Simulated assay, not measured.
Amino acid sequence: MTTKMQTVEVDDQDQVTLLWKEYKTTKSSDARDRLIVNYSPLVKYVAGRVASGLPGNIDPSDLVSYGIFGLIDAIDKFDPERAIKFETYAIARIKGAIIDELRAIDWVPRSVRAKARSVEKAIVKLEAKLLRSPSDEELAAELGITPKDLGDILTETRRLGIAALDEILASSERGDSGTLGDSIPDKATGPVLVFENEETKQLLAQAVNRLGDREKMVLALYYYESFTLAEIGQVLGVTESRVCQIHTKAVMQLRLRLNDFDSQN
């Protein structure tokens, strides 16, 4: 049932390794172009995930074009000697390039931004009062609206969170390879990945643990297991739209908690 990311297929992995060595040694434009072609499926994958939360007037082909710049940047800066897969490193770069271009065209209406800020303020107030994550009903009551209206706002607000959690960990040079998946224990994770950006990942993991069970499940399935929103809806027995709302609320809460930590340091 799960729609997984298609890994880059190559006829001979040794040839790709040699291609990396050639490019890093000679900076050959031909070697770089061949690497771009080899890893181009990553761009389509990331663009598709970003596009799922955008309005219909955003052309998916534009997202792919934006993402290519991120792929090129990833190829230029990647160190093959590090104990990390290129795909893991590149996804954050590709997504970051797409988000930067979308922000540059300022496509999110001011009214949506204002609604997002009002929800964030309500979350902060209720968490301080309740010492836990507020329910949808409590959040709606604080805002003086119905739960349905809150759901509509969260659906709109998702446009503001298209970078979602990966952006939190990839917004600086020290977070090149970070994703939410890196903050979730994985038996296959090597020691380099475990300790890289440890502070940020620990903070994110702690923030995730403070969420409700449903929010944690949505984040884990979406970021770690690569389920689509529709597939998560099938698991939870709710609509894709409802999963979108749960995801948006969870991301807003995590951003607020991490931002609060940053402001205190």
Rank of each mutant, 00 (worst) to 15 (best):
T179Q: 08
A141F: 04
I84T: 12
D136T: 05
D182Q: 06
K125C: 10
S135M: 01
R174M: 06
D100E: 12
P191C: 01
G175T: 06
Y222C: 02
T200G: 14
F86N: 11
N197V: 01
Y224P: 00
E87Q: 14
R93H: 09
R93E: 07
S172P: 05
K201F: 02
V119L: 13
G161Y: 14
S171P: 04
A140I: 00
E173M: 01
T179E: 11
R132I: 01
P109W: 02
S171R: 15
D152P: 03
R132S: 13
D213G: 04
A170R: 14
T157Y: 09
E137C: 00
V208W: 00
A170Y: 08
K125I: 04
P134F: 00
L203G: 13
V208L: 10
D182A: 06
L193K: 10
R158P: 03
E215T: 00
I99L: 13
A207G: 10
D213N: 07
G178M: 05
K148H: 05
L221E: 14
P147V: 00
R103H: 11
E137I: 08
V218F: 02
L126G: 07
V192I: 01
Y224L: 00
L126R: 01
I123E: 13
I162G: 04
K125S: 15
V124A: 12
E199F: 05
A188R: 12
I168K: 04
R117L: 10
L169F: 08
F195Y: 06
E137T: 13
S171G: 13
L131F: 09
V218M: 04
L221C: 11
K187W: 04
Y223I: 00
M217V: 07
G161C: 02
E167T: 12
A90P: 14
A207C: 01
K148P: 01
E101V: 00
A230F: 02
E199H: 04
L160K: 11
A207Q: 00
A205Y: 11
V194E: 12
R174K: 10
R103Y: 07
Y89R: 02
L211V: 06
T189H: 07
G212H: 02
G161N: 09
A122N: 05
V108A: 01
